[in-house]
Design a protein around this nucleic acid. Structure first.
Lengths: 157, 157
DNA sequence: CCAGAATCATTGCATTTGCAACAAAATCGG
DNA sequence: CCGATTTTGTTGCAAATGCAATGATTCTGG
């Protein structure tokens, strides 16, 4: 009789719960054992695989705003894990890159995080895991598309 | 040649990005327009549909620890949206319930949040949406199962 | 029935975060 | 070429958060 949506069935709620639980599980590894915040870990992850990356791209790929990027990068720099430089092409931008020490730490942590993640994913039936992969990919596309539309309408307004 | 996992393909990363973007999109509605935090909104959501709920159950269903529950509930009480009482069965616990004002506010906000959420979900092909539903359900089960295991081993240790 | 262990909510304090203000640099219009 | 607007990074300050400590209540083993 209730016209109220059951929370358990409310999609955004379930997505948030699952993502948070998953994230917490991984944070136990890089956080508790290595003292990295989620933002720091994410930046390190992004930077470990490339030569350098601009602050702009960094923000776009993490959905972190510029303040979060700036502060996480500052902490990582203090720890000697990344280095910061002013971009030659556009001196407003910063060019971040991973130090050797940062890459070494990342190489040490990543396998442990992967193990932790696998522990959860392997508990799922293969078909469900494939469904999740597919659905998540589509969701990311959908989010990106509505964002783009929102930005465009804002421009014209 | 790189033995480094591409971040874009790393599952936990994509899950976190999608959930955060989705969450931010909904927060524009209940946050910017109604001044509720994510935790406050979630508690209100849980309480709007039932007579009362204990602090313990509240925490379990939201993956929030007791401090977060306590503080979000305190703020909601100050706003007159929920009421707090000591549970008769166990006087350590609290029994939270939604006030009429809280239910009214929830009824006002929910449709707007649903509209916002639908805007994203409707941008997905039907089959992908179904896959996401299925995968997400399985993921929640998997997370719960490994949590249970972890707790049990901790007890025996 | 009682003393110690366990569970739960709250509080204090240091750190972090978000938002707005600000400063530096680039782009655009004339 | 110069001033106004836009874009980007940083900083200040108030609010939020996490973690450890505390207090209140219940449970457990004798």
């Amino acid at each position: 009789m209730k016209d109220i949506v059951q929370l358990d069935g409310f999609f955004p709620y379930r997505l948030a719960i699952a993502a948070e639980a998953f994230s917490r599980s991984l944070m136990k590894v890089y956080g508790r054992r290595y003292g990295l915040s989620r933002e720091e870990w994410r930046l390190l992850f992004l930077l470990a695989g490339v030569d350098a990356m601009s602050s702009l791209e960094l923000g776009q790929r993490t959905t972190l705003d510029k303040v979060q990027v700036s502060r996480a990068a500052q902490r990582l720099e203090e720890k000697g894990l990344i280095s910061r430089a002013i971009a030659a092409s556009d001196r407003r931008l910063r060019l971040y890159s991973c130090t050797e020490q940062g890459k070494a730490l990342f190489a040490e942590i990543l396998p442990q995080v992967e193990t932790q993640a696998s522990g959860i994913l392997q508990a799922m039936p293969e078909t469900d895991r494939a469904a999740l992969e597919r659905g998540l990919a589509a969701l990311l596309v959908a989010i990106d598309s509505v964002h783009t539309i929102a930005d465009e309408t804002q421009h014209s307004a």
